[in-house]
Amino acid sequence: MILDVENLTMRFGGLTAVHAVSFQARRGEITALIGPNGAGKTTVFNCITGFYRPSEGRLTLHAAQGPVALQKLPGHRIARAGVARSFQNIRLFPGMTVLENLLVAQHNRLMAATGWGIGAVLGLSRYPAAEAAAVQLARHWLEATQLLARADDPAGALPYGAQRRLEIARAMCTEPALLCLDEPAAGLNPRESDELAALLLRIRAQGTSILLIEHDMGVVMRISDRVVVLDHGRKIADGPPAEVRADPKVIAAYLGDGDEDEAA
């Protein structure tokens, strides 16, 4: 098990966006979080990645160095604990090059190598070696996401699909134990969706667990090991894709009540 969500509740004033949701993401698996618009998926994500502080409940990351209570950590510590995320509306550093985007992702490791800035200014440090290693890691993920040829272009100049891939590459450069992706296939054409699915399987194969919010059911059913379904802030189903697809409650949730705007 990599992530254990217990009784997660998130209230915004009088509105309960997420109501006592519990599920687990297993190590080395792809867990998909699905549900109609407004089901509270992104709210769950924001709680896990530290953008919201949950009203109630526990979030435990079982990282290599032991269990970590995510709900207690400040936002920037969560990434250091081993959770990386992408955003529904892409958030790159558009004025920086693709390579720079990936180096910013390795900030903490590089910063430690510079002796927190002082040594680096004077040129007395292990920094050059650390930077070379960081560029090597960036190069690895640029190859994996087919962006190597565009490494020196500004991120804002990339086409939409490439920006999505770059966001995943940037998240992977933090070397996370758990990668959280918020609708990575949104706006991609079928060929790009297939490439994305292959990329996610490759990430899983090298040992990173994935938690995925996705509306593209083709992608979800093809690559997920486990699917958690939310509706109106509650969990209504949890199991392997085939089982969830046949669940009458899930079918009712998707075909039944109308859509609401997503809570986040």
Partner: peptide
């Protein structure tokens, strides 16, 4: 680089573990 990243997108910085 972190300064410039902060100028570009503060939320993304936080998600990458930058204080």
């Amino acid at each position: 680089r972190a300064w410039e990243a902060l100028r570009e997108d503060e939320i993304a910085c936080r998600a990458l573990g930058i204080n």
